[in-house]
Design a protein around this nucleic acid. Structure first.
Lengths: 131, 131
DNA sequence: CAGAATCCGTTACGATACTG
DNA sequence: CAGTATCGTAACGGATTCTG
């Protein structure tokens, strides 16, 4: 359990308070879900279709977490074959820019990253050969 | 928006090419490490002190991952009691703005998030009482 | 339709001890 | 100092089945 009552010795001890927030909001699926919900409200099933590889379990977990943190909102629509809509909240909207920043960065730098990986892997292989 | 009309079944669904990159770079410790290395180069031990709760094992893993993706660089300095320095690369610097965007957002919105959580938890509790 | 419940393998992570 | 090696546990995530 990461510290709570820390505030230990040296001055620059920055065990960030928002670490735990980021864990909740930058997890495996949140960015993708958020990215979609920023465009338009969506239903559970729609999200499943858009983000193919997510299982209902994980999707539920992600949505609940985002809801709990006030980033998205769960709205029950009809009452027949129950319909539920998820939509971004005002607070959630403030998160849009940062998220897009990250996603854009990833898209743009992808090629360079690939290159770096290849270099690294080659070097590692070679080093192994030395043994 | 990356889409998906293609494969139907449950195999290697690549619904997002940078998903995997983000997993490597937005993991539990990377943001903190990055945030520090953006300020100045640091050594292994220094990072351990700054980020109190990280174990050597996890720190090594984080550093290796970032290095492999070309975000940081590992520099062996002396040769006596070996000294190693980690520093951000040019590619890594392009990541700085987005990362800070996220961190800033987290810091700013923290209070509202807390509020949202309390509301959510209270509601959940109450709903439970109904049973 | 929207999810809850189960089972279960993989991985992540912490704690600790050890080495060049 | 800068890690590696090992071990054990807890959490995550996937697949599947069930239900109001």
């Amino acid at each position: 359990m990461p510290n709570t009552t820390a505030s230990a010795s040296h001055r620059f001890t920055v065990d960030f308070p928002h670490r735990e927030l980021l864990d909740q909001v930058l997890d495996k699926w949140s960015l993708l879900v958020l990215n979609e919900l920023c465009e338009r409200p969506l239903r559970f099933g729609e999200l499943r279709q858009i983000i193919e590889s997510v299982t209902p379990k994980s999707l539920t977990a992600t949505l609940r977490r985002l809801e709990r943190n006030g980033i998205i909102e769960r709205v029950v629509l009809g009452t027949r074959p129950v319909a539920v809509q998820y939509r971004i909240t005002p607070l959630g909207k403030t998160f849009r820019a940062p998220v897009e920043g990250i996603l854009q960065w990833a898209a743009e730098q992808m090629p360079l990253i690939e290159q770096a990986r290849e270099r690294f892997d080659e070097d590692a292989e070679e080093a192994e050969r030395q043994l």
